[in-house]
């Protein structure tokens, strides 16, 4: 059992990091800090994917000799399958776009928080709940 975990030691700190982000999301009422927690969680998920793609002794997935147009196909014929190891490019592609999409959606969330602040005067969720459910402002909310 310990062997199995030691071979996969990378997942354990990443799970702790993911859960730290989740904890921030649940435990704080401040909406900005909650979004920070969400992106902490998100970045840790990126780490999970990229460690999946790691190959020991591998290179970054950039093939040196596929460069020329003339001999690209010829070089690839005997070059690609040789002993050079590369890390798996597929998770890299998925995460690369996810990072940029992540910041765009973070911006939407922050824009919502800014609008909430303008409408309610607070970004603490308990204050927001109180404003929504209290009898005085019930009609407005």
């Amino acid at each position: 059992m310990l062997d199995i975990l030691l071979e996969r030691f990378n997942y354990i700190p990443i799970i702790i990091l993911m859960m730290t982000g989740l904890y921030v999301v649940f435990a704080t009422g401040n909406l900005v800090k909650r979004l920070v927690g969400l992106s902490l969680f998100q970045t840790s998920v990126f780490l999970l994917y990229i460690t999946l793609a790691k190959v020991f002794g591998g290179q970054p997935p950039i093939i040196a000799d596929a460069h020329g147009d003339d001999h690209g196909a010829a070089a690839a014929g005997h070059g690609a399958a040789e002993a050079v190891l590369y890390s798996n490019p597929l998770p890299h592609v998925l995460i690369l776009t996810a990072i940029v999409v992540g910041v765009a959606t973070l911006a939407v969330g922050l824009a919502l928080v800014v609008r909430i602040r303008e409408a309610y005067g607070s970004i603490e969720d308990e204050a927001l709940n109180a404003a929504d459910y209290s009898r005085d402002t019930g009609a407005a909310g």
């Binding site: 970054p60 950039i62 460069h67 690369l96 776009t97 990072i99 940029v100």
Partner: peptide, 12 residues
């Protein structure tokens, strides 16, 4: 195409 990079990084 030849090194790390691309439209997403360059745009940022």
């Amino acid at each position: 195409d030849f090194g790390p990079g691309g439209g997403f990084q360059a745009g940022v």
